[in-house]
Every structure is written in C-alpha cells, then in structure tokens.
Design a protein around this nucleic acid. Structure first.
Lengths: 223, 223
DNA sequence: AAAAAGAATTACGTATGCATTGTAGCGGAC
DNA sequence: GTCCGCTACAATGCATACGTAATTCTTTTT
C-alpha cells in the first residue's frame, strides 16, 4: 500500500499509473486515451502525457497515436527476453555489491527481508512472500553502487512483477528460491564477487525455468 | 551528417539534441533552460520538454529544476560503470544473434562495415574508424532479436560515444579491436553462441582497459 | 444487406497563458 | 570589503486553447 506523495502532478501520475499496472488494476491490454486518463487522475493532459512518456521508457505501456496508452502484455517470448536480460544484468549488480564488501549493518535489512520471506513461506502467504522477494531484489540493486545499473534493473523488475504474481500460485520451488537468497547473503557477506554473480545468475535461471514452464503448462499467452 | 525528419517536433528535437550531445556540439557540462532550447530549436517549450524527458531517460542529460537541462559529464568511474553494464549486456546480444544462426546475407552489412573499419585503419582516418566501429555494434544489437535488449543497449552506446571520441587518438590497439570484430563475425557465422558471448565480453573488456588507462593517463576527469 | 460516402466526434501535437517559487542581482549594514 | 536581506526576474509545472487528422457513426446508394 504505497502512498502517493504529490510533489508534482507528473510524479504522482507516474507512481499511480505504475502501481496500477504492477498490481494489475490496469491489466495488460488495457487501453485508454490521454483525456480519459487525465480525467481519471483528475488532472490535465499535460502532466499525464509526461508521465506516460516515462512509463513507455520503462516498457510498461506503449503510446499508440490516436489510440492512447496501451498496457503492454508480455508474451512467453517476452518473458524469456526479460529473463535473458535480467540474468545478464542482475548478477553484475551482485558483483558490484560484493565488491563493496558490505558490512553486516548494511546487509541487515536484507536479512530482515529474508526472514519475512521465510515467515511468509511458512504461513503460506504467497503475496507476502512475493512482496518480500521483490523487496529483496529491489534492495540488492539499490544497495549496489552502480546507479546506472540500478536505473536499468528497476524497470525490469517492474515488468516482471505481474508475471511473478500470476505464476506464483503454481510455483513449487519457493523454498528453494528462498534459500537462494540466504545463500546469496552469505556470499555477499564474504565479499565473494564471483560467487555473488554465479548465485544470482543461477537463481534467476532457475526462476525463469520454473516460471516459463508454468506459463506453458497453463497456456498463458499474454501476461 | 544525419538528416532530421520532421515527423513530429518532439522526435525532431530529440534527434537533434541527441546528435548535438553525441557530437559534442553540446559538450558535457553545457546547461540551458527550456525556453532557451525552445528558441534555439525554433519551437515551443512543450515538445522540447517531452524530448528532454526522453533524453534524461537515456542518461544523456539531467533535468535540474530552475536550471534547465544539463548535459551529463562522465567521470572515470561513470565510464567504469558503463563498461560494467555493457560487458554484461552486449555479450548477451551476441548470444541472441548467434542463436538465430544468421545467414551470410544477414551478416553481409556487418562484413561491409568491417571492411570500412579496415580501410579507415589503413588510411589512419580515426573518425571514419570510430563511425564504422559504432555502426558495427549498432548493427549487432539491432539485428539480434531481443528488442528490449536493443532498447537498453542503444542508449549505452550513445553515452559511450563521446568517451570513445575523446580517447580515440590515444588508443594503440585499434588494429586488435578491428580484428576482434572479424573474429566475432566468424563466430556468429557458425552460430556459436558461447563463443559470441566470450568474444564480445573480451572485446569490451579490452576496450575498457584501454580507454580507462587513457582517461587516467590524460587526467581526464569529465567527458 | 453490404458497401461507399459523408458528417460528426475525438485524440493528438503543439502553442500559449498563468501562478508559483526559486535565483540572481542589488543595495545597505557591519 | 564582506555579509545579509530585499526586490525583480526567470524558469518551471500545469492548465487551457486550437488546428489537424484520423476514427467512428450515419446515411445513402446499389
């Protein structure tokens, strides 16, 4: 339940639309012209347009002239592409973080998030688990020092979020995935950058395999 | 000398500004408020603003409230970060391309570009060499099938362009760099995706080492 | 009834207006 | 001469206005 600071109307519109898309309130395939979104948000077209441009850059929507903003639906091959990129990029984030030799204090929030995952798993609270999982990766890429890398990874996680939401119920390796995080934390604590790279790569590879299988098994064609 | 289609004013403004930045006509550190840019481009603020938002997403400028658009200067560590990302991402582009088992016909333009590099090298025409080098990588990421990956790599190459321009004269391994491209093409032709990944990774790693050394040797602190 | 032609609507791209708010320049105090 | 405060200016964020072009709806024709 994020709250929406109204520093500027475009920032506000951006966050709200992004959140609506992430949480499937604006589902893939949803389409609306600028004036409608403006009305819906209670602001004029100008800030809406600017927010939409940013969302398009994030890959969350497509601006189709005369047809408004379209919430992009991911095909299975889109998901594959996404994972290909993520599997290349996120390990590098792990490297950067490990190289920074993070102190236990710096990693504390991550351990806390890991605990949350574990608890959610025991309680079989899937959405809590996903929230923690998301937060974990979010924190990793934020803590790591390469801002550009952070800026590139962040939208990828956003794009993936819906996919993870809709496949979540069918995943059978959540325990393993959770353990991956623990392993990663231990590796990070030792500053082993190569280990961090490998662990993160394998983690995402396993996840992609699992998720893509579910997508196929369930015959999901757009998500 | 690219020409500027005027399909829409924001697209036009975007291309022109991007080109101006790439070619150092708007050098790093240059700063101008929206109204000035609007006047300079002979259009109103609205399309300028939208173009600036995109350029900021590309990492080429920073929008600083009340101070206008600032052409970002890259510090040595920025260059390092850039290369870290590029070394993770571009090899993946090579993988995707190799996996597509490109036909000789598909690779023909690349061979042509390679010839251009070779000729430029022999003629010691540095800027022609760089143009060809740039074009080569541009083509690789465009030919490869992952559109998202293309969309992410493209801005990185733009950011790097100025760095390559300013360090070009001091580079001593241009022949080696040129040969790397030839090697890559042969690998691509055989569909060896792992080979493509390795070659591209090493190519960028060598380049980064060379470039960063020059940056240090020359005491370049912002470029 | 399907197709074609025309009219009405609407979305977009761009320009402009306006209030807000930060910044720089200027003058005075110490 | 430097520091502080005040005033004038300027850039921004947003709203609104408007012409153009495309889509949709209507109507007519065959």
């Amino acid at each position: 339940m994020p709250d929406f600071p109204k520093k500027t109307l475009v920032a506000d519109a951006y966050s709200r639309l992004k959140s609506d898309i992430r949480e499937n309130r604006l589902p893939p395939g949803f389409q609306a012209p600028e004036p409608e979104l403006a009305t819906r948000l209670g602001i004029s077209r100008t800030p809406v347009r600017e927010a939409l441009i940013r969302l398009q850059a994030d890959g969350l929507i497509r601006l189709i002239p005369r047809h408004g903003a379209l919430v992009v639906a991911l095909s299975p091959s889109d998901v594959q592409s996404l994972y290909d990129i993520l599997s290349a990029l996120e390990p590098q984030a792990g490297v950067t973080l490990a190289e920074a030799a993070p102190t236990p204090t710096a990693l504390a929030p991550l351990y806390e998030t890991l605990d949350a995952m574990t608890r959610a798993l025991e309680a079989k609270d899937l959405s809590a688990w996903l929230a923690a999982d998301d937060s974990f990766h979010q924190q990793v890429i934020a803590l790591q020092g390469n801002d550009r890398l952070h800026g590139m990874l962040d939208p990828l996680l956003d794009q993936l979020h819906r996919v993870l939401m809709t496949t979540l119920a069918h995943r059978e390796q959540l325990a393993r995935a959770t353990e991956d995080h623990r392993t990663l934390l231990h590796i990070l604590a030792t500053g082993d950058s190569n280990g961090a790279r490998r662990e993160l790569r394998q983690h995402r590879r396993r996840e992609s395999r699992e998720v893509l299988e579910i997508i196929e098994a369930q015959g999901l064609t757009a998500l």
